[in-house]
Amino acid sequence: MATLNIVAPGPIAMADFKGKVDPDWCPGCGDFGVLAAVQKALVELQIPNHRVATVSGIGCSSNFPGFINTYGMHTLHGRSLPVASGLKLANHELTVLVTGGDGDGFGIGCGHFVHAMRRNINLTYLVLDNQIYGLTTGQTSPTSRIGMKTKSNPYGNEDAPVNPLTLALSAGATFVARGFSGDQKHLTELIKQAIQHKGFSFLDIFSPCVTYNKDNTFQWFRPRVKKLEDNAEYDATNWVAAMEKATVWGDEIPIGKFYESTDIPSLEETEPVLDAGPLINHELHIPPDVAKKFVEELM
């Protein structure tokens, strides 16, 4: 079926971001809510779809780029962040969203996760965290709780889970937030803030797996999640307070913006090579006088 590739002039609408195929996630999957929130955020920010690149790894949630009409790239398992970093640095005028799951980001891709954050490249990283491996039919993930029974841990998980928020905070992420697929409005607002943040923004999103995770369901999360925004005293510029808040887990699970620092420049802002504009617009040949000096150095 042929579809129009050019957006008609006029306000950017939800239809502009409708993907070529409908998501093949299980009915009721948390990922639907995240997809809708991302589309809504882009519409509200009025970013045209051809100026957005969505980069993912591998897994259920990593099928994301196929279900949204932007420039998309479905990379390797765990490698979305280096690919997205290269893409952003070569054309930093694009809005680059990175999507993936907890296994992709905190398991196989954890090394890149830590290093991408300390570089402070202006990327928005959305982890659709369901605390399970879904596409491989239900194994323990890095965020699965201790004792959780899965196909890879039939007697219960023995490994302590990763805390994505404290990890992000200690690695130097300049925007750290947590959302819940079950609260669309709040999530959309967080995604908008994350995109507008200049630097690396990390958003951990509870996106329940309705097929394989019987512990952390929508029903389990709903009474527990408490918005930081409802607490007038919470100061999201205070890193120590954010660290403390990020360790709260139990009957109350905070969601919202934990931390944002706006005074650290992004890599694109500090890299002198980009003073002349995006790399893709640079002349292919280097200036003859520069080339001449390179050769003279050798003589």
């Binding site: 980069v55 280096p82 970093s85 290093h115 790399l279 893709i280």
Partner: peptide, 22 residues
């Protein structure tokens, strides 16, 4: 643009990302 990466897995994937940008 010259970047030192955390490992060679990051290297090749970052290089591919930049190449994809054009």
């Amino acid at each position: 643009m010259v970047r030192q990466m955390e490992d060679e897995i990051g290297v090749i994937n970052m290089a591919i990302g930049a190449a994809h940008a054009g």
